[in-house]
Design a protein around this nucleic acid. Structure first.
Lengths: 237, 237
DNA sequence: GATTGACTCGTACGCTGTACGATTAGATTG
DNA sequence: CAATCTAATCGTACAGCGTACGAGTCAATC
């Protein structure tokens, strides 16, 4: 009998980030591993949402017993944390050292961030946990570097990063929680029409109705970047 | 025996908004009511967090049997939705019709929004549910009206509202999930110092460390408002 | 007095996360 | 070779959860 390794290695920050790519066995039941567990958890979350992830079901999908998971993982919470970070791996081109347009670079970084999360809508609702996995930190570092190279002073970097982060996270959560499906839009329409008398301005703005979410996100992002770069020529680009 | 009224009235959008104020009985066990249930749920959430809210405990606090709650409420989810909206009631002065500085008004509205949620940190983690309660809608309407009176064209209103909403929600969730306590900050410090080699720019920005959250929020908000009001004089104010 | 409808609640069920300890298989050691 | 150790798996069991169901209470109405 061995002492569960959990406490010995539950130092999660040290554990190398889990990749979703590398797990592709042809058939049979390959041995359990953290990578397989996380990859399957992401599958399950994609298919059934946050409430659909149960330890027994996860184990079933892996062809394993439920309790076998606990050798690799401390508890269910950790599965969530790992799944969230796994989904946030950045697969973009490594930054070059040429100046390039920093603004394009920042926009691309942030749009990709949002898109990655919207591909797995459950990830937005997990954001409230204080999990700074390596992939999140990596994205933050890339963003910081971009802004820094753009000439943002170290003293202002904090504000700039947080503003952009906040905007992206808010937009993503909002987008993920309001429907991606047409049914949801219909429901929203239904909800709002009855109340237009109490909320006339909301109705005038056509809030929530036939919105171009991606375009709205982009426009707002540009506004924010305009504000953040007072020196630049803040055209609408 | 009566048919549960649930389905008949679970038309939540019609139900008048629940107030936290009005529930103050000296002692004894006043009869159950939706107001009391929601108010007590908020208490319990404040004290124990999201995971601390169990139907049995909620009922205990109310001096009632667990199943009695289900006469007033469809399920636990609805308790969450109602608690979230209850906490978002706006207690500010009703808007006057004088012009006033629209920018100050908007800033005040958004700061109050954030502050209201930070007073109940669990509320941030509930944001991912698509619950547009009356109090949220009311705040959105106020914000819309302010922007509209400031001269924002109806066509741009949608973007403006969502940008501000996204920013505020992102900031609030981030602030609520990263620590309010000193222990949390110490932990963050601990986490980051080991990794400074991998994330040098993050460290230079002193991200997450001894940050003035309120000030950062305010500054970023100003940047966003600068971007949103291209016509105005976009001073640092 | 009988009936009704609003409201309360005890019991029970299915499901959850996971503690505990037995079991196995492979490597290491004498 | 046998003995021992370590990593990994999993069956069983338990406490706690949300809530379905139906019986119970009480005031208002006929």
């Amino acid at each position: 009998m061995a002492a569960k390794r959990s406490s010995a290695q539950s130092n999660r920050s040290q554990r190398k980030s889990v990749s979703l790519q590398s797990v592709q066995e042809p058939h049979g039941d390959p041995p359990l591993s953290l990578d397989r567990i996380v990859a399957t958890a992401v599958e399950l979350l994609d298919a059934e949402g946050v409430d659909g992830l149960k330890m027994r079901r996860l184990a079933d999908r892996l062809g394993a017993g439920a309790m076998s998971l606990y050798w690799h993982v401390d508890n269910k919470e950790e599965v969530f944390d790992l799944a969230l970070d796994a989904v946030l791996e950045y697969r973009g081109a490594p930054q070059v050292d040429e100046p390039e347009d920093w603004r394009d670079e920042a926009v691309h970084l942030l749009q990709d961030w949002r898109a990655s999360m919207l591909r797995h809508p459950w990830s937005a609702s997990l954001l409230s946990r204080r999990a700074l996995g390596p992939n999140i930190l990596n994205r933050l570092e890339l963003l910081s570097k971009t802004l820094s190279r753009a000439g943002v002073a170290d003293a202002d970097l904090n504000v700039a990063i947080w503003s952009l982060w906040n905007y992206v996270m808010g937009a993503t959560i909002t987008r993920a929680s309001f429907g991606l499906s047409d049914d949801d839009r219909a429901a929203a329409q239904q909800r709002l029409t009855g109340l237009s008398e109490h909320y006339p301005t909301i109705e005038r703005a056509r809030l929530l109705l036939d919105s171009d979410w991606d375009g709205t996100f982009r426009k707002g992002l540009d506004f924010l970047l305009d504000g953040l770069s007072p020196g630049q020529n803040s055209g609408s680009r």
